[in-house]
């Protein structure tokens, strides 16, 4: 043997080397099951969806593989894309801003009121369908708030109560989503806001900074990646969910998830590729927004900026 090693020596070296390699990559090995699970389901599901959406059908006597996508190339669908993306963006931004303000108030003024924090987290456990139903019961023109307003003489008739359910602007949909997503944002950022206030409030104060200035110039910038990330999660979820617009938006509203669900479940198997194609368009938009945010975040960190 070279180096004066016998067979046992080489065997021992190989065992040690294997142990060293396992130890070196133990982090990767640890997340491997989750990674494989995610890749198999995500890639497998994506490939299967794309294949389904490209299922050919006879159009004008000829087989057409892209018929589903061609059918989406019309002004009505583009309008629906605008409405769906706009609605998701509005929910994400409103939930993000309201969630941030609520988390700041909870952390700064009501930290000792644990019950208030618990109340804030309750809506997370309520299914979206139920939350839509609850909202409908209270915000309809014949709902609780309308009756209360009528009872106190604030409105002359139930019809005078503003239309918040099945309305033109999707206000009911936005309110229902916010009722669910604001607590999610609060839950996500609250512990970090508590930590950031304890870390930086005093420092900013000795430099003359007010609480508002500390929030604007210190807490929000440091929190930005996580906060925006949370808003993106809300955006992606709202973009693809159908229960709330199905219950609270008017029929002609044009929410793509509702339209896709109808195509998938009500018009026969041959319309399924169209439903899948609609969802893939939404998935592509969601990924595009995600990639844009990651790009912007990388630019933010590029010069060496850190937040922790």
């Amino acid at each position: 043997m070279s180096n004066g090693w016998n067979e046992d020596g080489w065997k021992m070296w190989r065992i040690n080397e294997l142990g060293h390699q396992i130890n070196k990559h133990k982090g990767l090995l640890g997340i491997l099951p989750a990674l494989l699970f995610m890749l198999i389901f995500f890639l497998g599901g994506s490939i299967h969806s794309v294949t389904l959406s490209l299922e050919s059908q006879p159009v004008h006597g000829q087989q057409d593989q892209f018929w589903a996508y061609k059918e989406l190339l019309n002004l009505s669908f583009f309008r629906s894309v605008g409405i769906t993306v706009g609605m998701a963006a509005a929910v994400a931004v409103f939930s993000g801003v309201t969630g941030l303000l609520a988390a700041l108030l909870l952390a700064e003024r009501f930290r000792q009121w644990k019950w208030l924090q618990i109340i804030f987290q309750l809506p997370i456990g309520i299914p979206h369908l139920l939350s839509a139903y609850l909202l409908m019961q209270v915000f309809m023109q014949s709902g609780w708030y309308s009756r209360m307003a009528y009872h106190f003489g604030w409105i002359d008739s139930f019809e005078s109560f503003p239309v918040l359910v099945h309305d033109d602007w999707g206000i009911g949909v936005i309110l229902a989503y916010m009722w669910k997503e604001v607590p999610f944002i609060v839950l996500l950022i609250y512990p970090f806001i508590v930590k950031l206030i304890s870390d930086w409030k005093e420092t900013a104060m000795v430099l003359g900074g007010s609480f508002f200035q500390t929030v604007r110039w210190v807490i929000v910038p440091i929190l930005l990646p996580m906060w925006v990330g949370g808003m993106w999660v809300v955006f992606a979820f709202t973009l693809g969910a159908y229960e709330i617009p199905a219950l609270l938006a008017k029929t002609s509203f044009g929410s793509i998830p509702v339209m896709a669900f109808q195509e998938y479940s009500q018009f026969g198997l041959e319309r399924q590729p169209l439903a899948i194609a609609m969802n893939l368009v939404l998935a592509a938009i969601s990924l595009l927004v995600g990639c844009l945010l990651i790009y912007l975040q990388l630019g933010w960190y590029k010069k060496g900026r850190r937040v922790w």
């Binding site: 430099l207 900074g209 440091i222």
Partner: peptide, 25 residues
């Protein structure tokens, strides 16, 4: 002006931005 035991510099701001924080206020 108070200086703590730890530097407590704002991690997302450069040296100049940190020094100028009080002036910004």
């Amino acid at each position: 002006g108070l200086v703590f035991q730890e530097p407590r510099l704002f991690p997302h701001l450069t040296v100049v931005e940190n020094i100028a924080f009080g002036l910004r206020v």
